[in-house]
Each structure stands twice: as structure tokens, then as C-alpha cells.
Design a protein around this nucleic acid. Structure first.
Lengths: 107, 107
DNA sequence: TCCATAGATAGCTATTTAACGATGTGACTA
DNA sequence: TAGTCACATCGTTAAATAGCTATCTATGGA
């Protein structure tokens, strides 16, 4: 076939979004304070939400959640910040916006 | 976990787009005349492009292409029109636009 | 009526994905 | 310094996906 003009990472991003679990994570992280108010070790809006809370809310095993978070991070949609024993994940709005823009003009 | 508010078909649509082959098909069909000018049995812009031409352009087996087209159709992104022995596929711009709108306000 | 053509469907295989439990690692804590 | 906590990584298994060949169905032409 013709060479694909779909960059590798765009496909990776599309795959990251093609999962109900990962879309749910992204949506929760839009308003972390509303969904993870239990977090006391830091402002969820600023630094992000720790894995334990996301795991509890999803009701699945911690390694599985870790894997979903990694895929979203690899796609560029999440960034992590490690503070002490905790990893705080938050949305990368810039990458999300960029992806929407690309899809809008490509699709 | 909380009940997901991602409707089933939104996930199906996202999966349909998470494939380089299917994205390529959608892009070609944006300007069918430019990519499938060989088609003589009907105006590709109006009625769509037949499976044989898409198959030739992709360079993969006909059943595989048929499968990709079916997934795009199930997602609502393509519609088919059968005329004689031919099936003409074309973009469903309304569904594509709707999906972009949904993603924009959900993501 | 018979054959060819277009496309869909079925069946198989290889690969990828998603889940899990077990274990490793690094950082606080008693 | 021993233990615990937070998270990542590893290894396995089951299910989903993508490709192929073979075959079926329907239409059109000789």
C-alpha cells in the first residue's frame, strides 16, 4: 500500500483513547478535586492524583491500573511527578489539545 | 468501578480510528476523485468507491479490506451503497463530525 | 443456463492487549 | 536497621484483533 502518512505516535495516541478505562481516567482527571478529594498529601489539581486513589476508584488491580497510566503517559496525555513514595498523574492539556487539533484536520 | 459514561458505540468508534489502515481509507475517501480516478462505473464523489479499487490501493487481500470497511461502517463512519455487483463506500461526514464534536467536549 | 465477477463470510493462525498474582525497588517510619 | 508503603515490573493466561486462504452469495453477461 501507499506509505502511510499517519505518524506512528498518532496511532499510539488513538489506541490510548480507544479504551473505556483510559477515557474514564482522563475524564476524572479533568476535575481531580471532584473525584479524588480524599487525597491529602497534595493538591490534586496542581500536582495530580496518586495511583492508589485511581486504583481504588477503578476497582481493578494496581498493576493493571499502572499499565493503563503508562499507556496514557507514553501517548503524551498524562505526565507524572514523583514526590516521596507517591506518583502523581495529571493531564497534559497541551498534548490533548494538540491531538484534538490534529484529528480535526486529518479525519 | 463507577459505571462508565462512555457509550458503547463511542468506544467502538474510537477503536475504528485506532488503525493506520482504517485512517488511510478515511483519508483517501475525503477526495475520492483524486485517489480513485480509475473508477468508471460511477462518480466516486457521489456514490463512493468500490471495494476492488480500495483493495488494490491498499495492497492487501480483499477479505481483509472488507473487514476494515465493515468496522468503519459499524462505527458509522462509512456508508455503503450496492449497485449491481458493486459496493460503493463513502464517508458519512455527519457521523465523523459528530464524533469530533463529542471527543472535543469529552476529552 | 452457465460462467465470471464483486464482495461478504467462515475458518485458521499469529500477534497484541488486558487482566491477574508475584516480586522488585525506592522511600519513609518505627 | 528492619519493616512497611507506593508503585513499577515480570510472567502468565485469556480474549480480542488482523492478516490470510477458501468458500459462499448474488449479479450480470454470453
Amino acid at each position: 500500500m501507499d506509505s502511510l502518512n499517519l505518524p506512528e505516535y498518532r496511532e499510539e495516541q488513538a489506541k490510548a483513547l480507544a479504551s473505556a478505562v483510559r477515557m474514564q481516567i482522563l475524564q476524572w482527571l479533568k476535575t481531580p478535586g471532584a473525584h479524588f478529594s480524599e487525597q491529602t498529601t497534595g493538591d490534586p489539581v496542581r500536582i495530580g492524583v496518586c495511583v492508589t486513589l485511581i486504583t481504588a476508584r477503578l476497582g481493578m488491580s494496581q498493576p493493571t491500573v499502572s499499565r493503563h497510566l503508562e499507556l496514557l503517559k507514553r501517548a503524551g496525555f498524562l505526565s507524572v511527578q514523583r514526590i516521596g513514595k507517591w506518583s502523581y498523574y495529571r493531564r497534559n492539556e497541551k498534548a490533548l489539545k494538540e491531538y484534538r487539533r490534529w484529528l480535526g484536520e486529518t479525519l
